[in-house]
Design a protein around this nucleic acid. Structure first.
Lengths: 162, 162
DNA sequence: TCCAATTGCATAGATTTCTAAGTATTATCC
DNA sequence: GGATAATACTTAGAAATCTATGCAATTGGA
């Protein structure tokens, strides 16, 4: 008896029944934009000795100084171990001091140093400049619509996740 | 002579001359949306044993199989060492095979396995479902406008970087 | 009051990403 | 044809992020 030929894969299971080109995927487009923003931000703030990981925490602390690590994690939207690592590097870089809370000794309050406060205006202008460049050629009215839509998408996805 | 009082920080340098609330920053909004997309995608494809790092490469290979690693890096938009790591994990997971090119022995061709091909339709439907959920409550006409704007932003930022 | 649950932070280890530098193969140019 | 440059991939090491787990301080209920 001749050897049985290798069974072929059933072609139906491989057919391209589903198409979903990246250009039609909001997720894909958002990812690309995110990476473009990140790259530019990272390069520009590096000139001030600030890393992207530190940026998000500065952004929050410039609004509300002296938060606990847990509060910071929640506002920045990162997990607490990530916060620990970021704050450690910020401490080393002289951007914050961590103070054990007097009232509740479990808590650590995070306070900006004078150095970090001095960086505020200039770094916020850097961020705004990047946004301005990104928004070139888009009408203000359209931009307002854009912001509403992307915030809506985030809210939709957060709701799905419970 | 009484001790001189501690000199105060010059208030001008710390004043909040610049304001840039996150809700008005496209970069911030894009980041939030990106994270929401990522989290949901990661959870859903994990059920198929596929990680987020592998996802992007599958997405490209489902369109064009047999690319070299350099080509893949360019299309996925990641650096080559990242590609090496992702492909190694995909090889271990039985999603691809890497074949030294016969014509140019520097090159490595990346080919999908039958397993990876079988996953295609179902995983693309997962991606589309996430996009559908994100886009709930937004009119198709508005969505087209959204896609144009976010692609424009990415292009604007890429151009700035040279 | 005291023990268990909760809260706040930290550590350990894995994954994903980058930059910088190394190795092997191929192409170029006198 | 052989030195040099360019190309394709890999390794090494750092950073940022996550999940799972651990420890210390506080709170709450019997």
């Amino acid at each position: 008896m001749p050897p049985r030929p290798k069974s072929r894969e059933k072609p139906t299971s491989h057919r391209r029944l589903v198409e979903f080109p990246p250009q039609l995927s909001s997720g894909y487009l958002v990812r690309d934009a995110h990476r473009a923003f990140q790259r530019l931000l990272e390069r520009r703030i590096a000139a001030y000795g600030v890393s992207r990981g530190q940026w998000y925490f500065l952004r929050v602390l410039w609004i509300t100084d002296g938060l606990s690590q847990r509060e910071l994690s929640a506002r920045v939207g990162m997990m607490e171990p990530t916060t620990v690592i970021a704050l450690r590097s910020m401490d080393r870089a002289g951007l914050i001091r961590r103070v054990r809370s007097a009232g509740d000794r479990r808590k650590v309050e995070v306070w900006l140093t004078a150095k970090a406060k001095r960086l505020r205006n200039e770094l916020l202008m850097v961020a705004r400049a990047i946004t301005d460049e990104a928004e070139q050629g888009i009408a203000p009215r359209e931009l307002a619509s854009f912001r509403r839509m992307i915030a809506r998408m985030t809210a939709n996805l957060d709701r799905v996740e419970r």
